[in-house]
Amino acid sequence: MEQTRYFEDYAIGEGRVTSGRTITETDFVVHAGHTGDFFPHHMDAEFMKTQPFGQRIAHGTMVFSIGVGLTASVINPAAFSYGYDRLRFVRPVFIGDTIHTRVTITGKEDDPKRAEAGRVIERTEVVNQKGEVVLAADHIYIVSRRPSA
């Protein structure tokens, strides 16, 4: 869905929650293949039985990718992603967990490089089926200001 929103249209405190996505064995295997990260923490069930979590844990980068992907339901032609700050893997995610993403606008500021745009900061939290935050990051958008009439 396309929805043009300018810098002035964003309000601090507004947010949304995505639909859920259950993490599968296939997700682990595909992500390991894409990244080359075959660490035993993600791929060796027997090894992980001897570790504190007792089972394989999802790649943090996979949880980040899926969590961000869940938010990609609205296309705003007046905005683009500038990147992410303060990325943290707060809790482990396991096969069978269902995650969704909650985003909240937490800041707006001038863009020092572009007078015609501002920066919108969106707190991104990936949440598991227990309501626990498993990943948190600040997503920074560059958003065009409303054109002068």
Rank of each mutant, 00 (worst) to 15 (best):
V63D: 06
T26Q: 10
T101E: 10
R146N: 02
E109I: 01
V126K: 01
M43D: 00
H34T: 14
F80Q: 10
G36C: 00
E125Q: 15
D44I: 10
A11Y: 01
G107M: 07
H41Y: 05
G15M: 06
P92M: 10
L70T: 06
V30D: 11
R16P: 09
V103R: 09
I57R: 08
I99M: 10
E14I: 04
T101Q: 12
R21V: 11
A72K: 15
D9A: 12
G107D: 15
R114N: 14
T101I: 07
P40S: 14
Y141G: 10
G67S: 03
V74Q: 15
I140A: 11
T104W: 01
Q129G: 07
K130N: 14
G131L: 10
K49Y: 00
R86L: 03
T98E: 13
V17P: 05
L135K: 07
G60V: 01
K113C: 00
Q55N: 12
F47S: 06
R145T: 07
P92C: 13
H34S: 14
S73F: 04
Y6M: 02
E2A: 08
V63M: 10
M62V: 07
Q3F: 04
A149S: 13
K108P: 00
G36A: 03
D85M: 12
D44G: 07
L87T: 14
D44V: 15
E8R: 03
G118C: 08
D110T: 04
F94K: 04
M62C: 07
E125I: 06
T61H: 05
V120I: 14
Q3E: 13
R114A: 11
A136C: 04
A58K: 02
K113S: 09
R102S: 13
T106N: 01
I66K: 03
V74I: 15
S73R: 14
I105A: 08
L87I: 15
N128M: 07
D110S: 11
G33P: 02
A149F: 03
A32K: 08
D111N: 14
R86E: 13
T22R: 11
F80Y: 12
F7T: 06
T35A: 06
F39R: 12
F53A: 13
H59N: 12
R16I: 02
E2R: 06
H100M: 11
V103H: 05
G131F: 03
V90E: 07
D110Q: 07
V120D: 13
K130S: 11
R145E: 07
V17T: 11
H100V: 12
T104F: 02
R146P: 02
Y84T: 08
D111V: 00
G20P: 03
M43V: 01
H100F: 14
G15L: 08
A72T: 12
A11S: 11
